[in-house]
Design a protein around this nucleic acid. Structure first.
Lengths: 109, 109
DNA sequence: GAGCTTGTTGGTTATTTGGTAAAATATAAG
DNA sequence: CTTATATTTTACCAAATAACCAACAAGCTC
């Protein structure tokens, strides 16, 4: 029993979620949201982009199911919708760490 | 000590790795490679794209540090370069599962 | 070496993404 | 009800991505 191949439909679902995290600003925002909810203007200060751009990034994360939002007064407070992201980033960081090690070995033999 | 914000440079490194996985064909290929090495033509059969397209996808995964390659005879054999991807996809799947649940609840109250 | 097979690279085209500015919406404050 | 603040939406442009095909390179096999 070698396990069958991943169907395209499921791969596309996965890809959509992964895509939503495949941008430095969104990575920064998600990282910050891991420490608690934030409003859009706080996130704009964090990443230093136009607030309309930040709003679009957040809409993307929301559509992917990464964050949820709650309105209180004038502000929209965004928070993480899933608790597994630290494991996710741990894997990503282990890859970048491997790359850095490989790079060192290649350039300083 | 609340932890400072993730620096942009580190967020960009993370984003590059995540981006390399943010495509259905690459997700399928990585999933298959988790079961052992494969040559490019096998992967082409798997995803059903032109072999030049597959080659470019693999070059991307290699640049990101996800896979490594070894040439034997006429074939290039690709294999995973990191062992953490199952945890990575587990998180992704938990998000898609949450989305599906949320969708069901919204449409069939 | 001629010819086949496997894979990569370069060119072209179409689609998607990421950014801003301007207009629209929503709620609060006066 | 008018104004101010926070966010989203729309319109638009530039850059990046993904697909295919054609041409090339590398390594068999004869």
């Amino acid at each position: 029993m070698s396990g069958r191949q991943l169907p395209l439909a499921k791969a596309e679902l996965r890809a959509q979620v992964i895509k939503s995290l495949a941008h430095a600003a969104r990575v920064q925002m998600v990282d910050a949201l891991a420490r608690g909810e934030m409003c859009v203007c706080d996130l704009r200060d964090l990443v230093g982009l136009d607030i309309s751009t930040v709003s679009k990034h957040l809409a993307l994360l929301k559509a992917a199911g990464i964050v949820r939002v709650e309105k209180r007064g004038l502000n929209q407070f965004y928070r993480l919708n899933c608790s597994c992201l630290s494991a996710f980033f741990e894997c990503v960081d282990s890859v970048t760490a491997g790359n850095a090690r490989h790079y060192r070995e290649a350039t300083r033999p």
